[in-house]
């Protein structure tokens, strides 16, 4: 984990710096210095790993992790559906855990490891989940598919880590891989084409193979 002090220029440093400058300059420069400080502090330098490779970016603070991946790093495998946490198309793994990349800021991920669909596997070397989606026709248009695949890979890990779900009957017993569990746990990934049945089949096959 990254130490919290590592942020390159803090707002306080900037404000302190501009305040120091203005003691010797005119009121006009005062407002100018403050404006400048504000604009600069609206971006932040951030370094994180994406698919194993260290990436350093200076980003407008508003940039979502999703936009950083797609627009700045040109990893367009991760999709933008709703941009509001409702569809799951933007699902990536952050330090191995699935998350909606649209509802987190890139600058909040200093030192984190991000895995996108591209990092799971490539056409010549597919991840077993990617291969299973192809085999079982787990898609039609394919737009939700990167999110479905990232989500399902992490979801199976959650079951193995004994994280319960809404349909887990006994909270004190180990979590099981059943079709009901898979459906409930994948409910954060919407498929407008309705490929759900084939998606569940693909996931079930991978789950069985690894179990």
């Amino acid at each position: 984990m990254q130490s919290p002090g590592a942020i390159e220029i803090s707002r306080r440093d900037l404000l302190a710096a501009s305040a120091a400058t203005v003691t010797v300059v005119s009121a006009h420069s005062l407002s100018h210095a403050q404006t400048k400080a504000t604009t600069e502090s609206q971006s932040t330098k951030v370094t994180f790993k994406v698919n194993g490779e260290s990436r350093e970016l200076r980003l407008d603070n508003r940039t979502s992790l999703l936009d950083a991946l797609r627009e700045h790093l040109h990893l367009t495998g991760t999709k933008k559906g709703c941009d509001h946490g409702q569809c799951g198309a933007c699902t990536v793994l952050i330090d191995g855990r699935r998350a909606n990349a649209c509802l987190t800021l890139a600058v909040m991920h200093e030192g984190d490891s991000i895995t996108t669909l591209e990092g799971l596997g490539q056409p010549e070397n597919l991840h077993p989940m990617q291969a299973a989606f192809v085999k079982h026709d787990g898609f039609q248009c394919g737009y939700c598919t990167p999110g479905q695949i990232c989500s399902s890979v992490a979801m199976l890990e959650e079951i193995r880590a004994n994280i319960p779900s809404h349909v887990t009957r006994d909270l004190t017993a180990p979590a099981e891989i059943t079709s009901d569990e898979i459906r409930e746990r994948m409910s954060g990934n919407i498929c407008r084409c309705g490929a759900y049945s084939n998606i569940v089949e693909a996931i079930t096959e991978v789950a069985g193979r690894k179990a």
Binding site: S3, P4, Q42, N61
Partner: peptide, 9 residues
Amino acid sequence: RAFSYERPA
């Protein structure tokens, strides 16, 4: 809207 960001220690 634009905003500044900090990660206090």
